[in-house]
Design a protein around this nucleic acid. Structure first.
Length: 157
DNA sequence: GCCAACGTTGGC
DNA sequence: GCCAACGTTGGC
């Protein structure tokens, strides 16, 4: 089983959206980067995902979700009214993928980016490297442990 | 709002 | 295949 981290702007989709309806899967669509897409394709049912809030007041990891449905063609790429529409993608040969996530936990406080930067285990994680824009990335067991140890979240193990 | 860093596009 | 121009990401 792999652990992942996915970035989201909370105005669009936040950990609160998951917590509001904890059994309802949320489609993670709009990924338009090949490296991130390739990670989506590797996800397995039950994989854990750290949910990271970006471009907002409280930047950092806000909670966790798990993979509820593995990769399938992202419908927004074929929707001309969607901001994620990709006219170059053909339905018979979809370019972009989505997965579904369900709620796992919400941290009592967002684990802020500056705290993440201070974790020695995260020195090689793309998340804390300046200028890195990767929105979906794998998290090693060591990184996962360090993150969870920093949360003080009793529900996370 | 600024801007550095990055990925993508397209002319050649 | 190169690489300059461009658009986007995302922290500050």
């Amino acid at each position: 089983m792999t652990t992942w981290l996915m970035k989201t702007e909370p105005e669009e989709c936040s950990i609160e959206d998951f917590a509001k309806a904890p059994t309802t899967p949320i489609r993670w669509d709009g990924v338009r980067n090949y490296q991130a897409r390739n990670f989506l394709l590797q996800m397995q049912p039950g994989d854990e995902v750290f949910i990271y809030h970006s471009s907002c007041a409280k930047i950092g990891i806000a909670g966790m979700a798990r993979i509820n449905r593995t990769a399938y063609p992202d419908p927004t790429q074929f929707d001309p009214t969607s901001p994620y529409h990709d006219p170059a993608s053909a339905p018979e040969k979809p370019r972009w993928q989505a997965v579904d996530l369900v709620f796992l936990s919400q941290f009592q406080q967002v684990l802020p980016l500056d705290a993440l930067r201070q974790l020695p285990a995260l020195q090689d994680c793309p998340l804390v490297r300046k200028g890195n824009r990767l929105s979906v990335m794998p998290i090693t067991p060591e990184e996962r442990q360090a993150i969870l140890a920093a949360t003080h979240d009793a529900t996370a193990k």
